[in-house]
Design a protein around this nucleic acid. Structure first.
Lengths: 344, 344
DNA sequence: TCGCCGATCTACACCGGTGTAAATCGTTTC
DNA sequence: GAAACGATTTACACCGGTGTAGATCGGCGA
């Protein structure tokens, strides 16, 4: 494998001139530039990326830690982030944390090694009390989701309360009053479950409806479809009448629809269902699922953008650090078949 | 950030001794070892991975190029590969190719840069005629899937023909005779579509049934659900009677089930449906989907294993290169609700 | 006591680039 | 024609580890 020194010798210039040509330094005579280029081609030289990284301290690789790619929400999010990163010439090292605390702690340590310049982190097991772990990490971190907040870290997330509230209102507007909430978690006081529940209850309260605890479906493992079906079954088994369902994500909604249909209930005639996330599944479920689009692409783009800006700040030692950002992506309801048409 | 030299000074030993302690070199006195360990802790030293990579020429990062993580099959496959890699201390750089030729060619170039030691490559746009591109890449490559084959490259794939044949036989055994094949592609003469079609037609021929071209549903974009629904609609619109469906993947099957149910056909009573891939969706569709489990986890484990072995071969210059492997993972049918119970 | 040997530890070159400061060169200015 | 200046080019240190070869040390057999 040819090195820069080989090219320099071949072109009759110094190593540094070769380096200058390759890195686009402007003050190189055109003739020299061409001679170097010719030598590069002649020797089939390719720059040694690891040496470059070592010397410059920048790898151009950002870490992405998500719980699990098999879950469509995270798979699709990862695709968006990968695409955004690539548009800026960054590569992405994915670190799945498997919903475990150790996995997430390990992910936070990865960039310390130096191979990864910064991290986009979507926690699922760490909780608010762990927020101090995010301080002074020594590398740029962008937090996703609402598992935890920290005033010292950039954060990109979605309008959970507004989204869940809008979803609930959609059903209320259609005259539904017995609206179940699927996806409650015991452990949380600040995560997405709690926020979405808050939106749900706000919408009810605004109409003077009290929350009926029999309508709350608990899903304590994870927001997989199986738990949606089970939570829905629990609610129905309680004997309470149900004419609407707000599920805290699409997987839960699809699981809930499965259970409703298995019991002979028609969607949306008997029960209207709204999900959350707008994953691709929701477009092809039976019936297709009305859902909240939380602005996933926007989240990905903004997260990568913020990280890039922080990396640039790090590069210039003199530059001021901007203060941490909290960005809320836009939200909108995507109406499909699982909810009744709004009556004018 | 503390360096090895700082630790050495603090512990009163040479840099190399610190290096020896950290890399587990046996001939270090226990007292020295402990002194170094203490200094490492005291200074919060962490080894500079980029320097190590630069010096050793091995990054411990393998590339994974798949079309798209949002597609559950690839998301789940990526999870398995990431898990297998981690068990061996490897990290994974994912390069989504977006089903494009340029994306896949770019992915093949990534390891040349030096940051990635080897590549696990699941092509979707390159074709058999491009197989020569896989020769002499200068790094270990493991090929997944059946888009292309090359006798010079390690290859891990699944029993497509057997799987599709078994799926078709399952319906035949239940007395179904008008079995549609959903997911035909015009472009292929060797890819999974072709192989799965081969299995389908073999099963029919074994029973003396001729393939009825009206039962072939074409899905020329990609094997997304939308195309499954459309292909199913095309078949039904042709006026041919249908009592069974073999879909070439689960997403197509779920799309097809959507279309069947939209037309009032009952599954499995009127039409039995079998998918391929055993993605998580298939467990929660309505009805749940009988499918072919192609041994995804086995594929991931074997692919990582082969790559590891090749990387080790590369490390020892004297070592013999084993000849390229073609590994076929085990296959099995997972029976769920979408097919009639086998009558004894 | 001396020589030998393995265990332990160290000095130093080196991996392949990039940053810095300075040398060299050709013009332009006065 | 000399000083001044920007454009070009270069030498050299340096990033932070690891490999190699050799120094040092303590114990043991002769």
């Amino acid at each position: 494998m040819a090195t820069m020194a080989d090219v320099a010798r071949h072109a009759g210039v110094s190593v540094k001139t070769v380096s200058n040509v390759l890195s686009g330094y402007p003050h190189v005579r055109e003739a020299t530039r061409e001679r170097v280029r010719a030598s590069v081609d002649a020797l089939g030289y390719e720059i040694n990326v690891t040496a470059k990284i070592f010397r410059s301290g920048r790898s151009g690789v950002v870490g992405l830690s998500v719980p699990e790619l098999g879950q469509p929400y995270f798979g699709e999010l990862a695709d968006e982030i990968l695409a955004a990163a690539r548009r800026h010439g960054l590569q992405v090292l994915i670190e799945p944390t498997g919903f475990t605390r150790e996995g997430e702690l390990a992910a936070l340590r990865v960039p310390r090694g130096g191979l990864v310049d910064g991290l986009i982190f979507s926690p699922a097991a760490l909780v608010q009390a762990d927020a101090h772990l995010l301080d002074d990490l020594g590398y740029p971190l962008v937090l996703l989701g609402e598992q935890m907040f920290s005033s010292s870290v950039d954060h990109v997330t979605m309008r959970n309360i507004d989204g869940a509230q809008a979803a609930t209102e959609l059903l209320l507007d259609a005259g539904r009053r017995q609206i179940a909430a699927i996806g409650m978690l015991h452990a949380e006081t600040a995560g997405s479950a709690w926020l979405r529940y808050t939106g749900y209850s706000k919408a009810l309260e605004a109409r003077g409806i009290e929350v009926d605890t029999r309508l709350l479906g608990w899903a304590d493992d994870a927001w997989h479809r199986a738990n949606g079906a089970r939570a829905m079954a629990d609610v129905l088994d309680s004997g309470v009448r149900v004419d609407g369902v707000v599920a805290f994500n699409d997987a839960l909604a699809i699981g809930a629809m499965y259970e409703l249909q298995a019991r002979g209930l028609a969607i949306p005639q008997d029960v209207g269902v709204v999900g959350f996330d707008d994953i691709e599944d929701s477009r092809y479920s039976v019936p297709t699922l009305t859902t909240v689009d939380p602005g996933r692409r926007e989240i990905a783009n903004v997260a990568v953008d913020i990280l890039r800006r922080r990396l640039q700040e790090t590069q210039r030692p003199g530059a001021e650090r901007g203060s941490p950002v909290l960005y809320l992506a836009g939200m909108r309801i995507v109406e499909r078949e699982s909810t009744p048409r709004r009556s004018g």
